[in-house]
Every structure is written in structure tokens, then in C-alpha cells.
């Protein structure tokens, strides 16, 4: 019970909030970059998986299985610590002594983007398949090629349909940026850890951190719900 008497939320809040503010900016940066990459990858992967080429489909299935079969944290660690080593090794054949370095935030963005891109591609693929065949036929009858029909008629409808699900993944990604602490990105969790170990205000620090994430994600969930309603009007 002694601990309870010594709780000092006021101090923790005063000292930790500017840190969290800084960390939040980095987390948002990672989310923005990561999600943009994820969306682009998801559409490309989805289209690739619907292509006629067996080779393209085969390669994509292997990548998807690897990404979905390993933890995101392991992928991030791999991207930050291992991938640069592998790249250095390959390039060293041509340029001796070459050392490739990956900035932690960039590694994080790549890791998050690839991971989420794979999961989102399933959402996009399902949406593409759910679009009525008549849409493609109408476009073809007007003189579109299959590719034109896909990109200018089917995919706009499919992505529109997928946006609410995208929104939920976006919120998940914001929370998952906490994993970037493990690859030395100075986001909220890493800053909180540092502060807690200096001051021993463990309960206070981590409680404030958890509340900070809640404050971030709850309003966003509301926005997603609103978006869902808005977008269902002209489908």
C-alpha cells in the first residue's frame, strides 16, 4: 500500500507529456509513411494476384505467406538489423567495403508498410472480386481494354468499398508504431521507458502512455464509423 501513497501523477504528467508530444509526431510520421506504402502495395498485390501470369501469382503467394506467417515485430527487427547487412553483402561484390545503413524510422515505415500492405491486399482483392461483372462488361462494350476497365472502373469502386476497413487498419497501425521502440525509433513507448527507468514512476508513466493511445484512437474510430456511413451512399 506504500506505493499508492507515493503515486505522483502530477509530476509524471508534467514531465512526460512534452516527451509524448515529440514521440507522437514520430509515430504519426511512421503511420503516414507506412500506411501510404501499405495502400499502394495492397492495390498492386491485389491486382497481381488477379493477373493471368502464374509466375506473378506464385511469387505473391509466397511473399504473403512469409509476411502473414511471421510476427510483425520480427519483421521490423529483420528490416532494421538484417536487411541492411544483406544489402551490404550483395553490394560489396561490386563496391568493396560498402556499408548500407537504414535509418530506424525508414526501416519502421518499410516494415509496417509491407506487413500491412499484405493484409490490406486481401481486403482489396475481395472488394475487386465483389464488384459486379457487369461493370467490366459495360466498360469493355464502351471500348475500354481490360486493363483500363480494371483501373478506371473496377478499382475505384473496390477501394471505395474498402475504405472503412482501411480505416480500422490505420488505427491498428498507429498502435503498432509502439513496436518501433524495439528498433530504436524514439516514439512514445521508448520515451516512456526511458522516463520510467530514470524516475521510477513506473505506474504513472505507463498509465499515461496507455491513456495517450486511447485518446488518439477513440476519436479516429468515430471518424471511421462516419466515413463508413458517408461512403455507403452511392454504391
Amino acid at each position: 500500500m506504500d506505493i499508492l501513497n507515493h503515486l505522483d501523477f502530477a509530476t509524471a504528467f508534467r514531465e512526460l507529456s512534452p516527451e509524448l508530444g515529440q514521440g507522437l509526431l514520430i509515430a504519426l510520421e511512421a503511420t503516414l509513411g507506412g500506411f501510404l506504402l501499405a495502400v499502394i502495395l495492397s492495390v498492386l498485390i491485389a491486382v497481381g494476384r488477379l493477373s493471368n501470369s502464374k509466375i506473378i501469382r506464385g511469387i505473391l503467394v509466397v511473399i504473403l505467406e512469409i509476411v502473414r506467417g511471421t510476427p510483425l515485430l520480427v519483421q521490423l527487427v529483420y528490416m532494421f538489423y538484417v536487411a541492411p547487412l544483406l544489402i551490404s553483402l550483395v553490394v560489396q561484390f561490386m563496391i568493396p567495403g560498402y556499408q548500407f545503413q537504414l535509418n530506424p524510422l525508414l526501416a519502421g515505415i518499410l516494415g509496417l508498410g509491407i506487413n500491412y500492405g499484405c493484409y490490406l491486399s486481401e481486403v482489396v482483392r475481395a472488394s475487386i472480386l465483389s464488384i459486379d461483372k457487369g461493370q467490366t462488361e459495360a466498360a469493355l462494350a464502351l471500348g475500354y481494354t481490360h486493363r483500363q476497365a480494371l483501373w478506371s472502373i473496377v478499382i475505384p469502386q473496390a477501394t471505395r468499398q474498402a475504405i472503412p476497413v482501411f480505416g480500422n487498419y490505420l488505427i491498428m497501425m498507429i498502435k503498432d508504431t509502439s513496436l518501433l521502440a524495439f528498433i530504436t525509433v524514439n516514439e512514445l513507448l521508448l520515451r516512456t521507458q526511458a522516463y520510467a527507468s530514470q524516475t521510477f514512476l513506473t505506474i504513472e508513466s505507463y498509465t499515461i502512455l496507455a491513456i495517450a493511445y486511447l485518446i488518439l484512437s477513440l476519436p479516429l474510430s468515430q471518424v471511421v464509423r462516419l466515413l463508413e456511413k458517408r461512403l455507403s451512399t452511392h454504391v
Binding site: 462488361e137 469493355l140 471500348g143 469502386q157
Partner: peptide, 24 residues
Amino acid sequence: NEKRVARLRTEIGMVFQGFNLFPM
């Protein structure tokens, strides 16, 4: 050939049972 077929299709208008208007 897809391009050839697409070009010829522009000379033919088609109206479907299910309308197939673009909803967006």
C-alpha cells in the same frame, strides 16, 4: 488482339439488362 477488339467495340453501342451504370 485486345486493342483491335476494343477499337471495334467503340463502333457498337451495347445496352444491358442490368443497366450496368457506374455507381460512383
